[in-house]
Design a protein around this nucleic acid. Structure first.
Length: 222
DNA sequence: GCCAACGTTGGC
DNA sequence: GCCAACGTTGGC
């Protein structure tokens, strides 16, 4: 996961973060029953439109956060058992609310952030919907949140599974070029959250944004 | 390593 | 509730 960026970024990190190690799927997969009820997002933050595509940021290069390496790139996801990991460490309310609205089988771009080559590396899918992020209760976790109580967890995570690498890496700089052009022409990336919600580590994509980015795989790098 | 953007904290 | 201080994110 991301650490998510698994940095999960916002740590509040939620996500912030960097993700700490991601857990393997095994430990969590069966506990559907453990999911505690999560509060609904406040009306202010609730998204009206259902999204079915996502972009999730994680850091592919080593970086210590509270002494823990938060590195979690797409190769790390691929190396997990069943190529599945939990996306822990998200500590930003908006990003958390997006995690909570994710549904099984929805697809997400795996975005590499805070690294030499930022951009979209591959595709993954949601294989377990939101449940409490255990790292919020772990004192040694970079994403420990002493204000969160076991009987009312603040932070959530989902499990993601590797789907495939992009046919070619799609660099941030290329996406930005399209975003700039599309602002003028009304093209598909004109409102892309990557640029309009700069620090959000878990973000929705419209169908048009998702399809346009997939179409870039077939093009020569610009 | 710098630093702009921006979310969070906490005094008032 | 305002808002300055502070901390984090993340590109460059």
């Amino acid at each position: 996961m991301p650490r998510p960026r698994k940095r999960l970024a916002e740590t509040a990190g939620p996500d912030n973060k960097r993700l700490s190690e991601k857990c393997t799927k095994t430990e969590n997969s069966a506990d559907v029953g453990n999911c505690s009820p999560q509060k609904a997002p406040t009306s202010k933050n609730r998204e009206k439109t259902p999204h079915s595509h996502w972009l999730m940021k994680s850091e592919p290069e080593s970086r210590l956060e509270k002494g823990v390496d938060v590195k979690f790139g797409i190769e790390d996801l691929k190396a997990q058992p069943k190529q599945t990991a939990c996306w822990d460490g998200v500590r930003n309310y908006q990003a958390r609310n997006f995690l909570r609205s994710m549904k099984l089988e929805e697809e997400a771009f795996f975005y590499h952030s805070n690294c030499k080559q930022p951009g979209i590396a591959g595709l993954m899918k949601i294989v377990k919907e939101a449940y409490p992020d255990h790292t919020q209760f772990e004192k040694n976790s970079p994403h420990y949140d002493p204000s969160s109580k076991e009987d009312n967890p603040k932070w959530s995570m989902v499990d993601v599974q590797f789907v495939r690498m992009m046919k070619r890496f799609i660099p941030l700089a290329e996406l930005k070029t399209y975003h700039q052009a599309h602002k003028a022409t009304g093209g598909p990336l004109k409102n892309m959250a990557l640029f309009t919600r700069q620090r959000l580590s878990v973000q929705p994509l419209t169908q048009e944004e998702f399809d346009f980015i997939l179409s870039l795989e077939e093009k020569e790098p610009s």
